[in-house]
Amino acid sequence: MKLTCENINVTLDDKEIVKSLTLHAADNAFVGIVGPNGCGKSTFLKTVYRVLKPKAGTVFLDDANALKMSYRQSAQKLAVVAQHNHQDFDFTVGEVVMMGRAPHKRALERDHAEDFRIVNDALDRVQMGTFKERLFASLSGGEQQRVILARALAQKTQCLILDEPTNHLDIKYQLQMLELVKSMKMTVVAAIHDLNLAMMYCDYVYIMDAGRIVGHGKPEDALTEAMIEKVYGVRVKHMTDPESGCRMLAFLPSNKTHII
C-alpha cells in the first residue's frame, strides 16, 4: 500500500509545527524520518495516524483519503507503534494484543479461533509467545514495546507507523525489531532517532528540521556529512566497514569543546 502525504500543515496553539510537508512511501518501502528533537516528527506522524488534525493537507492510503475515513476503516489499513506506552493497568499480554483485532470487530462480535491464532502468531513473531498470560504492567519497557508491536501486527494492516519505536530497547532488540518490521510485506514510515539504524534499514529517508523537509533520498545519499552537521550541529564522518560493507556514521567531538 502506498502512503502519500501532501502539503501537511499542523498548528498547535497557534504555533506552526509542521510546515507544508510532502512525503511519499512506495508500496512495501521502509521510509525513515530523521531530525533533531522537537523538529516535528512526532507531530507529523500523529496527523498521519489521525490523533491530530492537520490545518491543511491530505494523507492518502493508495488513492483513498485517509483523513475522510472512519477511524475503524483507517485502523484496518494503518497500525501504529507509538513512543510512550507506560500504562499501569492490569491487562494480560494476550488481552493487549487481542485489542489489535478491535478494528475488525463489530460491537457484538466474539473473538474467533482465527483471532486467537493471529494473536499467537503476532506474539511469536516478536518472540513474546511465552508471555501471553503475563501482566503487561509487569514487563520491562522493551518487552512492553514488543507487545505493542505484536498488537500492531495483529491489526493485519498493510501500513505501519513507527514513532521512535526502539526508544526503550536494547541494541539487540532494536535490530531485531527493525529487521522484523523490514522483513514483513508492509509499507513502513518510521521516525528514527539513531542515524546509523536509519542508514541500515531505511530504503528512503526524509530529513526534517524545524517542521520542514530539508532533504530526502536514499540514506547514503541524503545523510551526507554536511547535511547532518547543518541539521544536528554535530561533526560526523561516513565510514564503511571493510569486512561487511556496512555504511556507518562516526560522530566526532566538536573543535570547540576542547578539554584542557
Binding site: 497500525a79 500504562q87 488481552e95 485489542m99 478491535a102 478494528p103 460491537a107
Partner: peptide
C-alpha cells in the same frame, strides 16, 4: 456488556483508541 472493547480502550487512552479504530 456489548461495549467491553470500548471500555477496555478507555483505559489505554484516546490516542490508542484512535489507532485501534475507536474515537
Amino acid at each position: 456488556m456489548t461495549q467491553y472493547r470500548t471500555l477496555n480502550m478507555m483505559l489505554l487512552g484516546d490516542e490508542v483508541g484512535i489507532t485501534l479504530g475507536i474515537s
